[in-house]
Structure formats: C-alpha cells, structure tokens
C-alpha cells in the first residue's frame, strides 16, 4: 500500500474545501430561490416567513399578471423562432466547414464564433441603430434576428464537435455503394450529428429565452421581453441606496415564481 504524504493530505483538504464551496455556490442560490418563492410574506427573505402558494396564484391570475404573461409569451415565441433559424443556419455552416482546412476556413470560423466573445451589449446597440436607420419599428421579428446572431455560435460549436466524430470512411463507403449525397446526409451524417445539433439547439433556446443585452435594445413597449420586464422594473424600483434585498413589492415576487416554474424540466 502506498504511503500517504503530508502534502497529499493538504492537497485533499484544500481542494476538497474549494470544491465544496464550488458546489454550494452552484446549488445554494437555486434552492434558496425555490424555497423563497413559497413565502407568505411580501418581502424576498430567506428563510421564508411561512409557506404559501399565494405568489403562484398571483402569477397564474390572468388579469393581475397579464403583462407578465404577455412578456413570457413574447419570450417563448422569439426563442422558438430564433432557435429554429439558428439551428438550420449553423448546422448547414458546420457541415460546410467540417472537412475543410486552411486559413480561410479558420477566419470564417472565428467570424462565426465572435459573438460569443464580443460584448453582446455593443452588438445590441449597433443592431438598434441599424434597424432604426433602416426605418423598422421595434418588433418581435427584429429581436429574433438579433438573437439568431448571438445564439448561432452555440449550435455551430456543438454540431462541429459531433461532426469531428464522424468517420470520413463512412461517407466514402456510402458514396461508393452508390448512395447520393442527400441520401448519405440523411442516413449517415445526420444520425451521427443529431445529438450535437440537439444539444446546440437546447443551449440556443435557453440563451435566447434568457438574453438581456440584445433584447434590452431591441424590445419596444409592445414587444416586452420577460428578462427585461423583471430585471429592469426591479432595478428601477430599488433605485439608488435602497438595500435591494429588503422590502420588495409583490410584482417582482410573482415573476420570480414564474421564472422558477418556467425552467422546471
């Protein structure tokens, strides 16, 4: 049996503690938000001051929460459209780029991935000015276009990763057995890369649903988006100085409940 050294003990202790802190930080806030949404009180506090479903009742009340419902439907509609378009465009591009090498291909790939690294807020402002100068009024379609730009890299990455697992010999044997390119794509390529496309589409959907920097600029009064509705209304209300954790009103609370519910798998 191997002798354990003092440094190995320090390794286990230090890394164990940091990892425990990491798991607490990852899980804690989610648990706290879930429990807080069942509170009886009017303020967002933990532990909650008694349990009730009142905020969920307010949330599903079609009259009192109508604005939130509309914002949520807008968010869902945009996320579905943007996800579908980004998935088609990025999958095609990934297939096109997969088997090519060279400086041009790398440059194009970097260009496609750049929205991940560039600050989205700068793009949001640029898109707002662009659409305004072109004479468009704020609409859900414009938000969807903006989202497609920032979520396509997610589909492109996951699809490219699964394409790299595809053995070129499979394509060659399919072709040499006489299958056309479309048939090969449908029966050989697609089954192999489908998990990658699905993962990318899921990430893209979530990213669109949750997008703030682009929606912030492109959402108008009639195309309210859920994260903007909650985030900004809340920030306005608290303003300067007020300790935002205490004494919040009822509306953000209902939205809190809504957001937690909506993300249940």
């Amino acid at each position: 049996m191997r002798r354990r050294r003092a440094s190995d003990w320090s390794y286990s202790i230090v890394l164990g503690m940091l990892a425990a802190l990491g798991f607490t930080i990852l899980v804690g806030p989610v648990v706290i938000v879930l429990l807080t949404s069942f509170t009886e009180g009017r303020s967002i506090k933990f532990p909650p001051s008694g349990l009730s479903l009142q905020w969920y009742r307010l949330l599903f009340d079609p009259v009192r929460s109508s604005q939130i419902h509309r914002a949520a439907m807008n968010s869902l509609e945009v996320a579905l459209i943007a996800m579908a378009s980004a998935t088609v465009l990025a999958t095609l591009a990934a297939v096109g780029l997969a088997r090519r090498r060279g400086a041009w291909v790398r440059a194009v790939d970097t260009f496609f991935m750049s929205p991940m690294i560039l600050p989205m807020l700068a793009f949001g402002l640029a898109a707002l000015m662009y659409f305004t100068f072109m004479g468009f009024r704020p609409s859900l379609a414009l938000i969807a276009v903006g989202h497609v730009v920032v979520i396509s890299p997610l589909v492109l990455r996951t699809t490219a990763a699964s394409l790299s697992q595809l053995d070129p010999a499979l394509l060659e044997s399919s072709a040499s057995l006489g299958a056309g390119w479309l048939y090969t794509f449908r029966r050989v390529t697609l089954p192999v890369i489908a998990p990658g496309i699905a993962a990318g589409a899921f990430l893209a959907f979530v990213a669109s649903l949750d997008n703030v920097p682009v929606s912030l600029f492109l959402a108008g009064p009639r195309s309210d988006m859920l994260p903007i509705r909650i985030g900004l209304r809340r920030a306005d209300r608290d303003g300067a100085g007020a300790d935002a954790g205490d004494g919040a009103g009822g509306r953000p609370h209902a939205t809190l409940a809504w957001m937690t519910l909506m993300r249940q798998p």
Binding site: V27, P29, I32, V33, F46, V206, D210, V212, G245
Partner: peptide, 20 residues
C-alpha cells in the same frame, strides 16, 4: 443547473443571500 435558471432569477437569489 445555473444555466437552467434565468440570469435574472440567479441575480435575485444573490440579493436574498447578500442583503442586510
């Protein structure tokens, strides 16, 4: 898990945790 909850919700959770 954090990706499955909204950025806005995560931010509010931290208000509950970090507040006075």
């Amino acid at each position: 898990l954090p990706l499955l909850t909204s950025v806005v919700v995560r931010t509010f959770a931290w208000i509950v945790i970090l507040g006075r």
